[in-house]
Design a protein around this nucleic acid. Sequence first.
RNA 1: GGAGUCGUAGUUCAGUUGGUUAGAACGCCAGCCUGUCACGUUGGAGGUCGCGGGUUCGAGCCCCGUCGGCUCCGCCA
Length: 589
Amino acid sequence: MIRTHKISQISVDTVNSDVTLGGWVNVIRHLGKLSFVELRDASGVIQLSFISEVTGNEAMNLVSELNPEAVIIVNGIVRLRPTPKNRNQTESALEIEVSTLEIVNNSESLPFEVVTDSPVQESLKIKHRWLYLRRARMQRNIELRSRAFQAIRQWFVSREFLEIETPILFKETFGGAREFIVPTRNHPGKFYVLRQSPQQLKQILMVGGFERYFQICKLFHDSYPRSRRQMEFTALDIEVAFATEADIMNLVEKMFKDIVTTVEPEFSVNQSNPVITYHESLTRFGTTAPDLRFAIELSEINIDKLSLPGFFEIESDPNVYLIRIPKRVAETCKDLALKSLLNGDFKEIARFSTDSASNEYKSADSFFNLFDSEWRCYLTEIQERDLVLMVTGKRDIINKAVAASRKEVAKNIDLKQWKHDWMFLWIIDQPLFKQDVASGKWKSRHQSFTAPKSVEEVFETEPDFERILGREYALVCNGQEMGGGSVRIHNADLQKQMFRLEGLNDSEIEYYFGQLLHALRSGAPPHAGATFSLDALVRMLAGESNISEIIAFPKLGNGIDPLTGAPTSINQRTLDAFHIENSAEDHNL
RNA sequence: GGAGUCGUAGUUCAGUUGGUUAGAACGCCAGCCUGUCACGUUGGAGGUCGCGGGUUCGAGCCCCGUCGGCUCCGCCA
């Protein structure tokens, strides 16, 4: 052992004992013949004192050579500080009176500071990753990530789930994301692909008799990265045999609740997840990933003519809408929300709030009491102090204004202030197919294995693609898509029909999905499952807006890794072994 | 591929209607300082203003092009 203690183990019990510590130089303060050095290891920070009367000459000379972020090993005596630091109580009232100092590795001048949390260009953060990882923020985030993964594994294992690995090297599939291809020397001209999902194999596991499967796994998409997305990302994959939508939704709901509160006990999760349909989410919130913490909501009132003496009159325009601004937004950033909202080319008729203290608005109670009770359903769950606007105008213009308002609020409020609140919801009844803009062809919105709500519909000779809904459920939290899943098809004929609807002929179906269809014909149980982005979960737990802050070694937004320079070209001699010719003009070898 | 935005010291940024020698903070180097703790203090080094072209007596600033970063859309859970 090089060290006798971790820094966190230095306590009042260790006063006057001889200790050897090792770590990084945090901060150096020279005061003439007296020097202080803050030493940092993974467990904490402690002050080292270099005093000429006590410290050896050698160490006194060496300390002047120290640079920040050097690695040192010191031996000395634990002492109570004569003037303990009282400004920051997390710092110890103890220090080490150094007798010997060894500079294991001094440090060059730094491209950015480690001790602060000041902003740094993304490419620098990655190029000098070893430095950026030393920052307290990254130490915290990576530790949090590890704890979250650990908690998830425990949660599932304790419920009789097995974590089963499935191969990363897979076969080309049809649909979904673009895949990375992997050549092999053993089979010239042939390729594996990096899995974009363990979907087919986990279904085969169900057929194979493993009824409760989960896996924390890396998935790969050859698509463009974003601030919340990398080309390779980590997912939680689940599949359960003899399960229905409700089984999976209940399981997942409880799991997220437990994980969030286990990992960050001060966070609060909504008691039960609202379930709304895809269509309802679009019409009410203008998005399929609403943030219920500030869900500025739009709903239409279908009336021809409305006249309420004392309040307002609507003459000819039948397009009347209510916009609800939740109390939280109304209270913290009302002006912000209203300003961007009222930019739109529509007319505000009236404004209500149940805030009786304010004379600015008419009371919602007095307003709604004028109506039949069924009017209230136009706005779900109106709460005390919500602000409600009644407007008239073109739907798409109002929609735009509401979207702009949501965006403005999301951008400007201090989300960290609200990050403790987790508002989950389920989105169900998504159409299974979407039309490709370029080709006009219908293809699966997600993957082709989801059971349709109505089997008859998909066997019609002229199926109405837009109306075919899936037995799907997507989980959304605070405006972030967490993932989702579905009840899978366990009947080979139905599965084959779904592939046909996507335009595949029989030989293509056999080529891409023969293995799955064969398995389904061999005693497949009904099953359902889900996949969730653990990067999204950890990002939210850490309160970060960019995913690269919760990944040890991320890539840039263009897919380049400044740390290693990947991707690079490969020399032709190597490529020859794969029988691959590089037709790109840009060779960097 | 499209839109927006940015590119100035090691880092983060400021830089007015185009005007003389391009600034600040932090960091770095040197001196002084025996209880600092974001130490203080005195001094110093450090810039092809992303790159190329243009307009102008004169460009960090205006115009055109180009490269790169970030965000968003397309793509993608």
